[in-house]
Design a protein around this nucleic acid. Structure first.
Lengths: 213, 213
DNA sequence: GTTTGTGAAACGATTCACAGCT
DNA sequence: AGCTGTGAATCGTTTCACAAAC
């Protein structure tokens, strides 16, 4: 038995994503004062199967009571710990365009522990403006500012052409996690984790589905 | 051989997503006037392997010349066809909040053939305002407006609590594809395709990665 | 000589099914 | 009696490896 302590074997990304989903459901149960939940209940709300829920959780330990289910607050707390959510993260936003501006204001990030602490852009008409209590800085100041105020993650919202260059500078500055909205595949050292979200691509999976039926 | 015509077997979502990625790369090659590309070249730029590229394409036909590679414009055109991108799509946006406002202005959608043609919100302070040439309509008018001006897809950017109700109304109106930004798992009839994008969840996969190394 | 197209092998994730607790 | 935890079976995806085409 090697749960958490000891050499954690690689857990599938799909498992991690479902964990995150279960957490949201557990927090709803918590608010309603429900204190026990079965894998079946979690599954039907989360759009999976009870076996999947149990298997997902079993990678990290055994949290349930047979015949009963899972204790809501304990399980929620344990998932927060697994996902690294029992702390806050300092996040830099690079690119003060349309999507960037939405993300700074997006409450979902802060609610989940992600604080945008600095904003950068190359556009001189944007630099100096206050956004949600933060001054947009010149992208040229990336190095000096992140030296002064290091961050845990960066959200990249630059045009495609600029993204790789910025990613290189960020990783040189020690940033180990990047959420990338630019429609390019970033090349980074293997100790850096990148998640790319491509909005147009999501619509394309829908058009594929519509076209192929 | 049953490529495209004939009973197309189920193609994995991961394959469709990569196709979309290859298309973007092919379009870059097209602009540069490069007219032949190998699976290896596509693979290294797309972050996969050449075998993966060939397998992905082989689901839909054989487009390459052995010893040579793939003809760029033909392959691009064929992928557009597969993804259903040789037409434009009419899209309704429901929710004129922070993210909604970014999406209306986002050029990536229009560039890819997705036209936002109507915007709805329940907030009376938003209704009536012009946004990027469109008037924000009261969500109560969803039925009358979509009867007048039907859409192919909807982008849902409502709070979590409202999302399922709106999804029900949309599907009743015949909408068969929904891009959902609300952090809930939507339940829909099985002829409706839903893609959920959960921004906070993406950051959580990053915090998981940071916490587990 | 190079690169495709594709069966076969390897790998990985999900589902099954049931023993073991409560 | 009910629900978890988990090996074993199944299913799906990726990688290998090579014959066929240019």
């Amino acid at each position: 038995m090697f749960h958490k302590t000891g050499g954690m074997r690689r857990v599938a990304e799909s498992t991690v994503r479902r964990l995150s989903l279960y957490l949201r459901l557990l927090e709803e149960f918590e608010e309603k004062g429900i204190d026990t939940v079965s894998s079946g209940a979690l599954a039907s709300l989360g759009g999976t199967t009870s076996a999947q829920v149990r298997k997902d959780l079993s990678f990290f330990g055994s949290f349930g009571k047979r015949g009963l289910g899972y204790p809501v607050p304990e399980l929620a707390s344990r998932i927060r710990e697994i996902l690294g959510l029992n702390r806050r993260y300092r996040v830099a936003l690079i690119g003060a365009g349309k999507i960037g501006s939405a993300l700074v204001q997006y409450r979902g990030f802060r609610a989940r522990g992600f604080d945008i602490v600095s904003i950068f852009d190359v556009d001189p008409t944007k630099v100096g403006h206050r956004w949600n209590g933060l001054t947009v800085l010149d992208a040229a100041e990336l190095e000096t500012e992140l030296a002064r105020q290091p961050v845990d993650m960066a959200v990249l919202v630059t045009p495609a052409e600029a993204a790789q260059g910025v990613a290189d500078r960020l990783t040189k500055l020690g940033v180990k996690a990047i959420l990338n909205f630019a429609p390019v595949q970033l090349a980074v050292a293997e100790d850096v984790v990148v998640k790319t979200v491509n909005l147009a691509l999501e619509l394309e999976t829908l058009s594929y589905a519509l076209a192929n039926r």
